[in-house]
Design a protein around this nucleic acid. Sequence first.
DNA 1: ATATAAGCGAGACGGTACGTCACGTCTTTGT
DNA 2: ACAAAGACGTGACGTACCGTCTCGCTTATAT
Lengths: 202, 202, 202, 202
Amino acid sequence: MARPAQAGGRPRESRVDDALGAAVRSLLAETGYAALTVEAVAARAGVGKAAIYRRFATKQEMIFSILVHDLREAPPEDTGSLHGDLEHLTTRIAHQLAQSSAEVMAGLLADIHVDQGLGDTFEQQYLAVERSIVEDLLDRAVDRGELAQRPDPAVVHALLLGPLFAWVIMLDEEPAAVPELARSTARMLTTTLTGAAPDARA
Amino acid sequence: MARPAQAGGRPRESRVDDALGAAVRSLLAETGYAALTVEAVAARAGVGKAAIYRRFATKQEMIFSILVHDLREAPPEDTGSLHGDLEHLTTRIAHQLAQSSAEVMAGLLADIHVDQGLGDTFEQQYLAVERSIVEDLLDRAVDRGELAQRPDPAVVHALLLGPLFAWVIMLDEEPAAVPELARSTARMLTTTLTGAAPDARA
Amino acid sequence: MARPAQAGGRPRESRVDDALGAAVRSLLAETGYAALTVEAVAARAGVGKAAIYRRFATKQEMIFSILVHDLREAPPEDTGSLHGDLEHLTTRIAHQLAQSSAEVMAGLLADIHVDQGLGDTFEQQYLAVERSIVEDLLDRAVDRGELAQRPDPAVVHALLLGPLFAWVIMLDEEPAAVPELARSTARMLTTTLTGAAPDARA
Amino acid sequence: MARPAQAGGRPRESRVDDALGAAVRSLLAETGYAALTVEAVAARAGVGKAAIYRRFATKQEMIFSILVHDLREAPPEDTGSLHGDLEHLTTRIAHQLAQSSAEVMAGLLADIHVDQGLGDTFEQQYLAVERSIVEDLLDRAVDRGELAQRPDPAVVHALLLGPLFAWVIMLDEEPAAVPELARSTARMLTTTLTGAAPDARA
DNA sequence: ATATAAGCGAGACGGTACGTCACGTCTTTGT
DNA sequence: ACAAAGACGTGACGTACCGTCTCGCTTATAT
């Protein structure tokens, strides 16, 4: 298994971790998720397979850990309005989606459903964080009086995430249109939640 | 594709096609997408591997063809109002989603991005059909005077599909809540498009 | 060949080589040459197929390498007379022929003609060795004054080998008679070469 | 099974038999024994596979029947001397050997050992015929007084056949030298059997 | 300082599934 | 009942990766 820490002995070389990250990212970009093999990663990183499996239990965990690490980002933020907060969030998600190709996202998503442990990690390290951001954002809107009551954050999350996600990895549409879609989605959601159009700015 | 049709010779046995469909469906339900092997399908269907590869070029094409065939459905339908049409469509998508597990959907989605041919087929046999339904539905709304102008159907499609798919295959939330989410999504979309809440019925 | 040796890395396990040799020999004895499968060899040897294909490029090369290895034998030997040398050689060949069934010998022979590389190996590792033995034996006879001049070694080889080979794998005659045939062949050849009957002993 | 004759119905087309013979011969020449497939034969002959299997039980039987048919040749012949008879016979065998490549002969030989039925046919249609020729030839020599007693025909057969076959299919030596080897073999055998050199002619 | 523990690259190991191919049989349509 | 065409079940092939396990060596820490 991976990462039982260490007591004595030679410490892990951070050089290896760095090389692995770089190798995985470059190979994903070149060959895609499905065609990525551990052997290719090891070769490109100039590393033995054992060094990989000392860090990650499976290939999927390796990719996942490396890519999710890239996603970890700043704490929420209060823009002063529900619409501002929503737009900020959808824009951030749009940025995250743009980091990898649709093929990689889809592959990752598939593996998350295969491996229970991976699914748990995804839930805790990504979904739970996002959901709590949504919760906070909604709470602030309630506090401001923009909302009468707090809607189900999971539903709001789905309404936020869904269109962007569908645009990129289901419909395989123009990625360039994603930022615009992010704004549309935020506007739509604000309208729905508050029952009124957001301040006419965008 | 592996189907150059036939001229003379022994015709394909529909018995084989049927058995393959049943075998794939049952194995997907039992073992999931990732664990499905061609050999297991052949064995369960009582069929040789060659009969499979005579029909499908790859394992992915096999699964895809069989499952997409299941999705093909009735023509649109005019419910008399934009909201009715949207709700009808989201409900239909919700039903389709319920047919397979999230793991299967995610696996399928991943493979669509790997194999160009599969992607094309998906685009033509599923997405294009759905999109034209959306187009028709929007045109009717314009004709009725519900909408001043027709919005981009691709965006509307994403706004429709997205929350449902995200709920099921990204957030891995309760499938039982999908029908309710379908209605919420339709309502939200109607509000956004028309600038007013739908007739207060639901 | 599939043996680019090795530099670093885990060394080949001789246990695997041994198990493969034993498995091939026992399966050849039980099921014959034509019915031998790589999968069966792997299973019996308790070895993965990859370990086999790491050592041998094809099934044929595997069988061939293992069986030819068995044939490698002692250096020539000087019995003091041409007839003694010839008889010694034919007897040795008779022993080699007796090691495998006619079916195996015939299968091997057929594959040698199919695969160029196999043919080369056979030529170098078996035929060339035998031929040089024949050459030495003839040279000694010339030195002793038994022969006036050295006949073509290839022809002598054919005259030696041929009858035994024909008896066993063409005519499929009684293997028990092979030793006697070996002696007859040696006697005949001595007579022909020297123009006189060998010392009347056998 | 093959050739249960026929009662009523459409008669077999000899056109098919001819085409099969030609196809097998040309394919053996072009691609060799091991690479010959029934499908290729059918295609080249412009014939369905069923037509082949109506005539022959297996691929091996097909090849064998067609090639052995080619071998069937004139009855013995009395040249007036043992040496003449032997030389005639070895020369005839040399001619037969020249008809096919070593690869084909070796492949055939291997299959004869695999399939019992094929082995029986070979024994009866080729070996038994040859052996009876040898018997007759030896009987005539006894009658002429050239031999005091008749040696074992099987041994004589092996001594005749062996060197020629070994030259061609084991040693893979120059086929051009076969006629000369045929004469040498006959001479050697005559010397051995009669205890004296043949009339110094060749 | 020396032992111990864990790191390292390399690559062999047992497995498992892939997609291909040929076999010999069967099923259609035509003649 | 023959023919050509070609689909059928079977089963082996050789390939490719997986995740694990040596191998000989290096590098920190704990004695």
